[in-house]
Design a binder for these strands. Structure first.
Lengths: 137, 137
DNA sequence: AATTATCCTACCAATGTTATAGGATTTATA
DNA sequence: TATAAATCCTATAACATTGGTAGGATAATT
């Protein structure tokens, strides 16, 4: 299991946008600058977050990104699924994948595990991540 | 995030061994047969479980595999780490990976997430997986 | 019209996944 | 003591995923 670069960068982009004081939003190139991510690579990150409907902007010159909802209404699972639609356990995903799936204790476990993991990711909100201060106390 | 084939096969091999009534243990080739996994590929699965100390056998002809501990003392995390030593979030693994790590809310979150996930995998025991009967009630 | 900034498509090197193949080694037993 | 059973060990390889780069098209502001 690995949390990949897109998801981690996506999280940082979301935090960056959420933290912005500017009512006009944040420019992609400024996120790239703040977060030290290549503008071109950030292209695909932003596109995914936008497609998922977590952020929005207007087009053309001067278009800053803003969150579409309150940070309290955005979970880590929301951000995660902007990049990966699900948590992958091949034998769960397609029933035909394995012909013993109708009676497989292992598969039963993975189904339960996946549910628990999604719950774990869903309970944490962007607002909590932003306001947690672990370093000053 | 993905649960890969080795981990899934490893789990099934462990269940197979745990379920065996034979006091001599289970032959690798029989696990391959029961679980429909190629004998050769199973080689590497068994090797990893053995290296981790979860199963043991004697050498040569007639050497069946047995668990080294009670199924109640074996967690999913034990099995998981036979194949992957950790859950990977690159920016956590090496501190030098990212020079903003000393003040990164995102990184703070992933550290917490990883801890929670290991806890989730650690609380489930092989005995529970074997004895859960989800299909008959 | 020029500029800013995103949007879109294609490409690519490195790595990880999922195996297969061939033979060496070890030990029980006939 | 052969011989067969069974694992142990090393190499190879096709394929998919990851983590980007590159170039230009498009849209809106000034």
């Amino acid at each position: 299991m690995k949390i990949n670069t897109k998801i981690r960068y996506g999280m940082r982009a979301m935090i960056d946008i959420a933290n912005s004081q500017n009512p006009e939003g944040v420019l992609q190139k400024d996120i790239a600058l703040h977060q030290d991510i290549s503008l071109k690579y950030l292209d695909s990150i932003i596109a995914a977050l936008k497609l998922k409907g977590l952020i929005a902007n207007s087009k053309g010159k001067g278009s800053g990104y803003k969150l579409t909802r309150d940070p309290n209404e955005i979970t880590v699972w929301d951000i995660y699924t902007a990049f990966e639609p699900t948590i992958i356990v091949d034998c769960i995903e397609n029933k035909e994948f394995c012909n013993r799936s109708c009676d497989c204790k292992s598969r039963d476990y993975w189904i339960e595990f996946k549910k628990d993991l999604i719950e774990l990711l869903s309970k944490k909100r962007l607002s909590q991540i932003i306001f947690d201060n672990n370093h000053t106390n």
